[in-house]
Nucleic acid binder design. Structure first.
Lengths: 231, 231
DNA sequence: ATTTTCAAAATGTGATCACAAAAATCAATA
DNA sequence: TATTGATTTTTGTGATCACATTTTGAAAAT
């Protein structure tokens, strides 16, 4: 049996087992610590987190509905393989979705929430300065999430998170084969546009943030990376 | 126990029980035959489709990940209530997502696939002429799905379907309180633009198709409908 | 008539078991 | 050595059971 090592995770009281399993697996996929092509077994995961197949199966179903996992014809479950084409689609969709989410937030966001964005961005810069990639990644997600969820009726956030999840495995590959991930962002540009309630400028900043960040990989670089990772 | 009546559904051989349960519930929600606010019980559904709680729970988890169901704090599960604000967000997101999907399909679609779109549109017109709302709705979905999936690496279709699912309950309400759903579409405009491989014109046609179709409800009309339905 | 109390029923959750299909292992054969 | 074939193990699936929590409904009290 494939021995799966999973980072333990804080489990708040009252959280159900399947929810906990979902969180832990999601986290592992998001940061790219499960190799694409590696097959996950229900019993293996259940044993790794000291529970039983039932709640693990529920977690796997949710993750496959979220696009994080793929169910094969054999009913085996694995992290989807990445291709240059799929990567391109993911980046393009991410740009579309997050521009939409940002536009729809501009009319709702308060000055206090914008101040919060400033604080998150500052914390991210500090994490980058200390070469703490994992924390920087998490804070970058928190920046975007905080912006988009300023709209209380927003529907798009789960879809944005789904794209992040699907990009996770590639991040894992990139981190393993690139000496240093260089972070560039357009957060301050977005913040300035938000202060002015300039919807167009906000969308533009978010688009640039995505396209010049993770989306900035050249196609040749991507194919090279994937080849190196044996995909 | 709330007695749930579910349309039986064709079950292909080899389809697992949880997949079948997922399909049947999804279908019921999509056409608006489950009233928002009505609480679904695992055992009730299991009994209604002559199976057991385990696979039903998996189906419910998937549907909640797809946005079709909402898990309350009591762990009760229900179809989310609709509000005018949520409806507005859903329509705006639908327009954004489907314009994106359409643009991304233009470069891949073949003449044969465009011919297929023509056939589907014709069948839909016939269904409308015969006042067969259910069939017309299904064919409309098939039109859009066929267009978007012309792109083989496409990622967005599950998200489009998620929005359709979330709009389903409102459709059910509208059908119950409006004498006749008037169908307007921009399919022929989209087809003409596809033949010319005019990405901008395709996106424009899809946008109009959505905004003038289900998205055409005035806010006052929506609030009135929701009030009538006791939401 | 309304509210409170308390027992009974219903419900979500997760562990366990049995079964069939798939994968892996190993011996026999070419 | 490589390949086939049979046996064993592993795995996904779904039904069932026990437990804790919630909901329900009726009786009692205000």
């Amino acid at each position: 049996m494939a021995v799966l090592k999973l980072e333990p995770l804080d489990r708040p009281e009252g959280m159900t087992t399947h929810e906990y399993a979902h969180r832990r697996l999601r986290q592992a996929i998001m940061v790219g610590s499960i190799r694409p092509g590696e097959s996950l077994t229900i019993r293996g995961i259940a044993e790794a987190m000291e529970s039983s197949p039932t709640p693990v199966r529920e977690a796997l179903r949710r993750l496959s509905s979220e696009g994080a996992l793929k169910v094969l014809d054999n009913r085996r479950i694995m992290v989807p393989r990445m291709t240059a084409e799929r990567f391109g689609e993911l980046i393009a969709l991410r740009a579309t979705l997050e521009q939409h989410a940002a536009r729809r937030a501009v009319g709702h966001i308060t000055e206090k929430q914008i101040d919060r964005l400033v604080a998150i961005d500052k914390a991210q810069d500090e994490a980058i300065a200390q070469n703490d990639n994992a924390t920087a990644l998490l804070l970058n997600q928190e920046f975007h999430r905080t912006l988009y969820t300023a709209n209380p009726d927003q529907i798009v956030m789960p879809m944005v998170e789904s794209v992040w999840l699907q990009l996770g495995p590639f991040l894992g590959i990139a981190m393993a084969h690139v000496a240093q991930l260089y972070f560039v962002d357009r957060h301050q540009e977005a913040i300035a546009a938000l202060r002015k309630r300039d919807e167009e400028a906000v969308a533009s900043a978010i688009n640039a943030d995505i396209c010049e960040g993770i989306g900035g990989f050249e196609r040749a670089a991507i194919e090279n990376l994937l080849r190196l990772a044996g995909q």
